[in-house]
Each structure stands twice: as structure tokens, then as C-alpha cells.
Design a protein around this nucleic acid. Structure first.
Length: 244
DNA sequence: GCGACAG
DNA sequence: ATCTTGTCGC
């Protein structure tokens, strides 16, 4: 698929912050968004080295899953060298360049992107899922394994699959704390672009019939690790791949 | 000032 | 994120 990036990737914190502020108004958090998507993409990135600095080898992966079968119908990977350090709140600049390259290799156009990380549940309300949604123009949502901003009342969250509590930050509901399996730790879902929170949560639940994390996240995580290992083993082999 | 801080 | 041994439970 085609993805235009109408600006240079920031290399310093000040311009990275400024770009988030400039793009934030472009994110649409209203819905409903795709109620019954056939193709949902999962995205993730794996790192070599300590994973926090610059110059590390990174491998981005995108998997496209058919919601009817939960099978992966397409995979794409891209490797790169990190050009931005890990900074909480600016995390997207570390992963976006490689993720965009992987997305460009896709033949299918997903109807929803599920990102590893937050969307609206971000200090400036512009997490990775928002940035990716605005860049692609596709519906996007974030599924994070740990909280970043906001709080919730544990008493509101039952122990059964499908239960959820509002994630509130500065008086604003920025996401949901969602239990995807009975008795497991919840995941943190927030909107990124062109989808509302209830719809995003419904998709996450549908993609997580057996495990805590949705299949999109699990498959993308596996693929990114495999791609990283492959790139490390054969430094000169073609790094970017697509199949399916 | 101090602690916390997506992946 | 990544590096890691052992351990508890189904």
C-alpha cells in the first residue's frame, strides 16, 4: 500500500514534540469505524542491542490477519538502524520509519491497524497509533501491555473476559482497560484514528479468543523477532520482505 | 524537588 | 525493548 510521509523524521526532541502538536488535530477519534473488518493488520518492532539508544538494528513487522479465520494472509518486514532514542512520549519516532517501510510492501490494504502501544492514552494525546493512523489515513487503535498515562478503578474491572474499566487522565477518558481472558492481566486499548473506543475494544476481543494478546500482536511480535534474527545472521541478505 | 515513564 | 534461572499451576 502507499504511504506518504510529507515531512522529514525528526532527529531531536524539540522538533519531535512540535510535530506531534501539529499532527494531533488531524486525528479523528470519532467512530464508529470498521464494525466488521475482514483484514486487520498487526504491527510490532524488535530491537538488537539494549533497545534504548541510537544505531541499533531494528526489525519492523506487519501481519495482515483475516478476521474470518484468524489466519495470517500477508506478512511484510523491514529492517533499519534506529535514529531516535527511546523517550517515553516520543516512542513513535523510534518505530515509525521502519513500520512505514514495511507497510509500503503490503499488497492488501487493511481496514484497521492495531499497534503495539497507545493511541489517545498519551501525555499529549498523540501516541503511536494516532501517528500511524494519520500517516496512512486508515483506522488505527493502540493495544498496550502496560499503562502509560491515566488511572482506573480496579473495582470497576471484573475478572472475566470482556470486562473493562475506563482509563481516565486529567478528567478525560483516554482509553479502556480491557480483560481479554478470564483471570489474566488486562490490556490497555485506546483509539488512534477513524475508530471509536467501543469498536476498537470489540475488534481486540474478537482477535483474542484464546490468549491475552490479540493475534495481530502475537503474530507481529513473532515475525519481528524472526526478521531481526535473520538480519543479524545475514547482514548482506535482502532485508525487506513481503509474502502472501 | 521527587518519582514515574508505551516499546 | 532485551537479557535471563528458576518456579508455580493447569
Amino acid at each position: 500500500m502507499r504511504v506518504d510521509v510529507p515531512y522529514d523524521w525528526p532527529t531531536d526532541e524539540a522538533s519531535a514534540l512540535a510535530l506531534q502538536d501539529r499532527l494531533r488535530p488531524l486525528a479523528d477519534h470519532r467512530g464508529p469505524g470498521p464494525g466488521h473488518p475482514r483484514l486487520v493488520a498487526g504491527l510490532d518492532v524488535a530491537y538488537a542491542g539494549d533497545g534504548r539508544g541510537t544505531g541499533d538494528l531494528v526489525a519492523a513487522a506487519v501481519v495482515v490477519i483475516d478476521t474470518a479465520t484468524l489466519e495470517v494472509v500477508e506478512r511484510a518486514t523491514a529492517t533499519a538502524t534506529s535514529t531516535f532514542p527511546y523517550v517515553p512520549g516520543l516512542f513513535a519516532y523510534r518505530e515509525l520509519p521502519a513500520l512505514v517501510e514495511a507497510l509500503r510492501l503490503l499488497r492488501n490494504t487493511p481496514e484497521l491497524l492495531l499497534c503495539d502501544g497507545h493511541g489517545l492514552a498519551h501525555p499529549r494525546r498523540f501516541g503511536l497509533a494516532c501517528h500511524l493512523g494519520v500517516l496512512t489515513g486508515l483506522p488505527a487503535a493502540g493495544v498496550a501491555k502496560t499503562p502509560f498515562v491515566g488511572a482506573y478503578d480496579p473495582a470497576d474491572l471484573a475478572g472475566t473476559r470482556g470486562s473493562y474499566a475506563d482509563l481516565v487522565d486529567a478528567g478525560e477518558t483516554v482509553g479502556r482497560v480491557l480483560r481479554t481472558q478470564d483471570g489474566v492481566k488486562p490490556v490497555f486499548v485506546s483509539t488512534g484514528h477513524l475508530v471509536d473506543l467501543p469498536t476498537a475494544c470489540a475488534q481486540v476481543l474478537a482477535l483474542a479468543p484464546a490468549y491475552r494478546l490479540p493475534e495481530t500482536t502475537r503474530q507481529a511480535d513473532r515475525l519481528s523477532r524472526d526478521a531481526l534474527a535473520e538480519a543479524a545472521a545475514r547482514p548482506d541478505a535482502p532485508a525487506d520482505t513481503v509474502e502472501g
